[in-house]
Structures are given as C-alpha cells and as structure tokens.
Amino acid sequence: MSNPHPLTDVQTLRAQARQHLADGAVTAGYSADAQTVIGLLNEALATELVCVLRYRRHYFMAKGIQSKGIAQEFLVHANEEQEHADQIAARIVQLGGEPDFSPDTLTSRSHAEYVEGRTLDDMIREDLVAERIAIDSYREMVGYLGDRDPTTRNLLEGILAVEEEHADELAELLQGRSAEAGM
C-alpha cells in the first residue's frame, strides 16, 4: 500500500530550509498564494477593527435600566475582537505582509459596517448583523484556504468559533429583550 502523502526526506527538508531565508514562515511547502492570503487577512483585520470601534461605542452609549449588563457584554466582545485583530495582524507579518491599519480606508475594506444604533435594541441588532457577516466571511476564507495554508485556516477557524459565540449571545439578548417587552 503506497502512502498518498509521502514525506520529504530529511536532507531535502534541510536544503529547502536554507533557501529563501528572507521568506520566514513561507517555505517551499506553502501552497497558497501568500499575497492573496495577505489581502484576505487585511480585509479580516479591517472587519475586526470596525467591530472593535462599534462595540466600544455601544459600550459607552448603552443607556437604560438593563443597560449595565449589556454594556459589559459589549466591552467583552470589543476586547475579543481586538484580540482577533492582533492575531490576524501577526499572521500577516508572518506571511511577509504588512497589516493595514489605515483609518482612511478602514470601513471600505471591512466586510461589516459601522452602524452606531440609537437604542439598546438597535445596538444589539447591528452587532448581531456584523457577527453574522463575519461568520460567513470567515467560513468562506476557511473554505478557500483548505489545506493550502493550515496555519491561517486554524487561526480563522478559532476566530470563527468566537464569532459564532458572539452571535448566539447577541441573539439571546435580543430575544430576551423582546420577551420582556411583550410582558
């Protein structure tokens, strides 16, 4: 029985590792197009940064009797989105790219929109919409990467799992507020 994925012999691995040292983590075995992946990651970075800004605004602007707990949830989400942005920026650098933090083009590169929302329900709803956009975006990126860049795929899968948790939490908040309003 032949191995469908034969392993490279040690001497070849050693020789390949000495070539193109300036490429860092992008070795001869990297089969994705690094520039395309960097572009996708910069879009994801913009999306995360826009989400950080929106959640932070919502944290400070949340008002009403039940706003304190919801505001704290906004802050937790903002901090987690910042962690995602940092992870994505680090991966961009590992791939030989430059993370794009330019505020001039941030919203045009982001998949999610920056919608302020006026009421607490509007804020929750807009954050939920943004999370759903991020979920679909990350799923598509994971599918695109497949086995060509398992490190980036794993990073995005981890972020995707957190975005799904955020969406569930926001949906529960919105449903809970709707149920209370109907009492």
Rank of each mutant, 00 (worst) to 15 (best):
H5D: 12
Q11V: 15
A15L: 13
A15H: 15
Q19V: 10
A22G: 08
A22W: 15
G24E: 13
G24T: 13
A25W: 08
A28D: 13
A28M: 10
Y30S: 00
Y30Q: 02
Y30N: 05
S31C: 06
A34H: 13
L40I: 05
L41D: 08
N42H: 05
A46G: 00
L49T: 04
R56C: 06
R57F: 07
H58G: 05
Y59H: 12
F60A: 09
F60S: 10
K68Y: 10
E73A: 15
V76S: 11
V76D: 09
E80H: 07
E80Q: 15
E81A: 09
Q87G: 03
I88H: 08
A89N: 12
R91A: 09
L95K: 06
G96V: 06
G97P: 07
E98Q: 10
E98S: 04
D100R: 08
S102H: 09
P103L: 02
L106T: 01
S108Q: 04
S108H: 01
R109I: 01
A112M: 04
E113I: 01
V115C: 03
V115G: 04
E116K: 07
L120N: 05
R125M: 01
D127R: 02
D127A: 02
L128T: 02
A134W: 06
D136T: 14
D136L: 08
S137I: 00
S137T: 03
Y138L: 11
V142K: 04
L145G: 00
R148E: 07
D149P: 12
E157H: 04
I159K: 10
E163F: 03
E165V: 11
A167V: 12
E169I: 02
E169L: 14
A179L: 15
A181T: 12
G182H: 14
